[in-house]
Design a binder for these strands. Structure first.
Lengths: 366, 366
DNA sequence: GATTAGCACTCTAAAGAAATGAGTGCTAAC
DNA sequence: GTTAGCACTCATTTCTTTAGAGTGCTAATC
């Protein structure tokens, strides 16, 4: 199957062309400069003269794998070439490059701190910009509700969802609620709702609850809204970023004012959630996905490449780690690094419930 | 008094020099280009020839108010000149420039959203970078604690502080806590701690509580730690930023890689808390403070000017709004804008308790 | 004494001009 | 099919020139 797929992709590329193309790509990844025929002539062990290479490169250009920025310049790879490169690379190597094993010197107790740390470590280590989204809860269940009295005018609803996601919500009330009523409401809500998923809390259930709440139906309504939000949890999908300014390190990105827009995207954070959504769908390539240029999920990243990894903590909790850099990114290293991080995160938090434990950071690995 | 202070500051500056200096500053603020004698000769209504202006400017340079970037260039103001300018400006005008009155089209219900909005509106409107810190609670009191059982291994402590700041904390437990014990602990904690400030929860109190908790002393200890954090609230002083990339719009800041560092400061956010601390101390100038160049509270802003406003919501809750831009900032507009925002915020949230109300955004003003 | 006109001088920024060199495409020979 | 050779292109660098803005100084004027 891999063979056939290969044939499809490398359509018309004989082995020599392929080797030359790879040489061009690798060289360009390193230097960032257009690659000339003479360079390839020496760089490969094909023992071909530059003239021959020139002929081949001319073919490659016609096929859309490389272009010249201008006449009389070397060639640079197109998005098509990167795609080919990445695909074959991903197929060939399943080897884990964990040169940054143990880079997260110690696991953080709190998940948000941990994710922040992941983002920062990745950014510092790769010199690209990073985005980490906290695990979103998909189809999760309500654990319990705690209703407390804050003052005469408002109640506090503390909602805990499976996976120990906690959400507080202020519920305004018109009349004073006494302790007894509060207790009743607490029992009412918990006895009916505990263990429920969003789907299961249907109109019938809601009507039943409101009926039983009597004159406090309004309050119950407010609480249910808060519950819905807590379970869905989409509103405040936490996003952590780091190293946005790394973008300025790559001339091809730093120049124009597009760099500003891009960094702005990182500052706003809001749009970045799209990266998570996009990459969550797929589970094929070991949770790693590569978007090159136009494929990028966000407009301001059209000149970049985006590599995402989805980590999976069980209980349907999935988050994503993404790296954003120039198209001439060190895909090899980035993919390896992401895999390592993904493993690290999964090992640390999987099935231990959101909060995490103090000890035992990287148990399973190796 | 103002006169004397003026005399101190404008030491050796006669009226004409002062007017010329002001003209240089204003012109430079507008254009960003060094200002020549001929320009001033026309720009002011002094009716002096360029030659005379040159003589005066030569004096001003000697006095340290202006410098030439190089021989045969016009003059640009020094930090000293900006300081003078800002000080006299602040003295002279108490008039509120509210050209962005009602810019916050509608008040947000939730404070964090509101502050985010303030940051964004300011950034878009001024074209500078903005920092808004949420009100920190100083010397605040505990409202109540709600202890709930999450599962066999952990409890959830929900801590509400005056001003309705809510904090959740997971408390790991070794043995299973039954409902009755939980109720007892709840009562124990609330009966002793409600209404207490951090100072009042002293060692005696702590010992007393632990004694009464018996075998659950450990749990009480953990809870008290969480309470301390909640009241202090310093750990996660919320910081909202916007328009960091505006910095790239000003050539004098965008050029070097210092711009990267600066934007990075905004991304990290952590260091920005220092702005709040710094500016909170002072209440003299109507809550507005201007830091020019070297005076800036953060290292990476040494080439910028920082204008901060402290807003005061009563109950000791104070936060800050800051604007970071080039030294040739439109101080006039910025100060006016900040004052307006400060008022807007105070009117919206003052004494209504953190949550805010839906209606009545800009009541008092004008 | 203060102000101004005039002029020589300085230095930057912009515009041209020339040199450099990397790289290509093509052709003819191997 | 491969290669050597050569003419040609074009970005980049360097040097030169030019233009212009602005100063500082001096001598004349008010």
């Amino acid at each position: 199957m891999a063979g056939q797929e290969n044939k499809n992709k490398t359509d018309g590329l004989d082995d020599r062309k392929l080797r030359i193309l790879h040489a061009v790509i690798r060289n360009y990844l390193e230097t960032g400069e257009p690659v000339g025929s003479r360079t390839i002539s020496k760089y490969t062990d094909l023992n071909l003269s530059s003239a021959t290479i020139r002929n081949e490169m001319s073919d490659l250009e016609e096929m859309g794998y490389i272009v010249q920025p201008h006449t009389s310049a070397g060639r640079i790879p197109t998005d098509k070439a990167y795609r080919l490169y990445v695909d074959t690379m991903m197929e060939e190597k399943e080897r884990e490059i964990s040169d940054l094993k143990g880079l997260l010197s110690e696991a953080e107790e709190k998940m948000d701190l941990m994710l922040k740390k992941v983002a920062r470590v990745l950014a510092v280590n790769t010199n690209y910009a990073t985005v980490v989204t906290a695990p979103a809860i998909h189809g999760n269940k309500l654990k319990f509700i705690q209703l407390s009295r804050v003052d005469d005018a408002q109640l506090l609803a503390t909602i805990v969802v499976e996976g120990n996601v906690i959400r507080n919500s202020m519920i305004p009330v018109d009349e004073v609620i006494n302790e007894e009523t509060l207790l009743k409401l607490n029992i009412l809500l918990n006895s009916h709702l505990n263990g429920m998923s969003l789907d299961e809390i249907n109109l019938g259930m809601i009507t039943l609850l409101k009926e039983q709440a009597g004159i406090h139906a309004g309050i119950v309504g407010d609480i249910l809204d808060a519950v819905a939000q807590a379970i869905r949890g989409d509103e405040d999908l936490e996003v952590y970023t780091s190293g946005a300014t790394n973008i300025l390190k790559y001339p091809e990105l730093a120049d124009n004012q597009k760099a500003g827009e891009l960094i702005n995207t990182f500052e706003e954070k809001k749009a970045l959630a799209k990266i998570a959504e996009e990459s969550l769908d797929d589970g094929s390539t070991g949770g790693i996905q590569v978007y090159i240029g136009e494929e990028a999920p966000i407009d301001s990243m059209k000149d970049c490449s985006v590599v995402t990894a989805t980590y999976e903590l069980g209980d349907g909790m999935r988050g994503s780690i993404a790296i954003v850099g120039p198209k001439r990114m060190d895909y090899d290293k980035v993919v390896g690094t992401l895999k390592t991080m993904k493993d690290e995160l999964e090992n640390t938090y999987k099935k231990k419930g959101g909060g995490g434990k103090k000890k035992g950071s990287a148990g399973k690995k190796e």
